[in-house]
Design a binder for these strands. Sequence first.
DNA 1: AATGGAAAGTGGTTTACTTCA
DNA 2: ACTGAAGTAAACCACTTTCCA
Length: 160
Amino acid sequence: MSSRGGSDDEDEGTTRKKLRLSKEQSALLEESFKEHSTLNPKQKNALAKQLGLRPRQVEVWFQNRRARTKLKQTEVDCELLKRCYESLKEENRRLQKELLELRAIKVAPPCVISHDYYMPLPAATLTMCPSCERVATVDNRSLTFAKPGFSHLSQSSAAC
DNA sequence: AATGGAAAGTGGTTTACTTCA
DNA sequence: ACTGAAGTAAACCACTTTCCA
């Protein structure tokens, strides 16, 4: 690894001061990064020549730039996951509440149907999808799931 | 004087290539 | 001639250090 340890960085004799890239240099590097986030040796050398920098400096700039991009993306992903978590927490709260209500309905005395007297069934009874183990509400004629996303269940069988 | 951010250093991993038994 | 192991260089990445505004 020839470029390790700055052996090709020797310049101006004694202590090498850290260089701050000019606006023009940064702009050109940014422009180049937009086109391709990695450089082949030919592109790197050409860009270095154009900028008046050492190829190693161009290489380092691209490495740091990729790292910054990744960091930014990670932060965005983190925010997204936070929001997703909050949303799921809220939905879980709501479903737990719904489950309690449905259990209460299930525990209530069964309906009686006599010849001259019809007592309607409760609006829904509780069942569990055996495949995905989600709770579903079922009435006489059709299967009605509490949440969207249960469409994978057919009406004829309460299984996924 | 303290600090954030960017340039540069360091060490580890991967990949492509060469050499040699 | 073919093949697999070993060595090497280059490039990348993650992490860290240095230094300037």
